[in-house]
Simulated assay, not measured.
Amino acid sequence: MVNFLISVYNLYQLAGNTENIEFRFLIYGVISQYSREHGIPVFLARSLYQKYLIQRDSFKKLDESYIEGMELLHYISYLHVDERVMTYYKLGSHALFRGCHEECIHLCKKGINEDHKRDELTAKAYLAIIIAYIELRDYILAKVYLDAYEQLDCLNVQKESQYLRAILYAKTTDDIEKAVPLLLDCLHMRPQNEKLPVVNDLLDIYIRLGDELGVVDIFQSESSFLPTNVDTPNQCTHLGLYFRAKGNFYIEKCDLDMGCASLLESAMYYKKMMKLEEAIKSIGYIFEYYTANKENLPFGILQKMEILYTVHNT
């Protein structure tokens, strides 16, 4: 048994020193399979942990990696405390992205309970909990955790808390137009790659208020807030949401070229993350318009839909 453990340890060290990510993932897979079959929970936990950290960065494997990450929780006691905290935080943010808000709250709270560093990772966990409570419309607990978040001595706490206070103000008062200047201040404080979530909230308020000038102003200034590098699932989600709102707005104004192009772009971003129901929803608005007006879909739009379908299935 000792020789087996030494061999597994050496293989684990080899994986950690391997630069090729695919090869490293393959080695961790071998270790996890062998450890599961031979009852070596320490290396099963470590290899599952490393596999999860690699796989969760893949747009096309977000659901698969989440399921495997949840398996890791069965062996989490075999990880070092820092790895346990990281696992809870990573899975918590992953759950938030998938819309599993209660799981997000549960996981992040477990991480906070074991985390004694109170650093940037802690702050992100608090943010995830606050956003999850907002999505669940539990604004009282959202405010409770926002108060706790503001006590953290971490970078960007003031910036993020101001943004969340503005969102809560919009959600909990009838006077939602007063949230607009607060969100505009938040927008000016952020670098370009972080502006889009704030823009989407502004857009939602302008649409609810019927402020078409505000909506158009956003669309005409999008070069100042669209991310220059799209490399996270969160960015793709907000891009899908943004272009869906833009598409619906212009379709309602009978600007079909702009409307359809935007909805197809929305579907593209959702498809990139394998959120196929959301992609279909964006495309569905195009069909709804042409069906309601008893018009045939233009051939050009059908071609673009075919390209979208072909790319997904290759």
Rank of each mutant, 00 (worst) to 15 (best):
T232K: 06
Q235T: 00
Q235W: 08
C236S: 09
T237A: 01
T237I: 12
T237L: 05
H238T: 03
H238Y: 08
L239S: 09
L241F: 07
F243N: 04
F243M: 04
R244M: 08
R244D: 04
A245R: 05
A245W: 00
K246F: 09
G247W: 05
N248H: 01
N248I: 00
N248Y: 00
F249A: 00
Y250G: 08
E252M: 08
D255R: 14
D257H: 07
D257E: 14
M258L: 06
M258A: 04
M258W: 01
C260E: 15
C260F: 11
A261Q: 13
A261E: 13
A261Y: 13
S262T: 08
S262I: 06
L264T: 06
M268A: 09
Y269D: 09
Y269C: 10
K271H: 07
K271Y: 11
K272W: 06
M274N: 07
M274P: 01
L276C: 11
E278M: 12
A279L: 08
I280T: 14
K281W: 13
K281E: 15
I283E: 11
Y285W: 05
Y285I: 00
F287R: 15
F287W: 08
F287M: 08
F287S: 07
Y289N: 01
Y289L: 04
Y290H: 11
T291R: 14
T291K: 11
A292V: 05
N293R: 05
K294H: 12
K294I: 02
N296T: 00
N296C: 02
L297T: 02
P298T: 12
P298G: 15
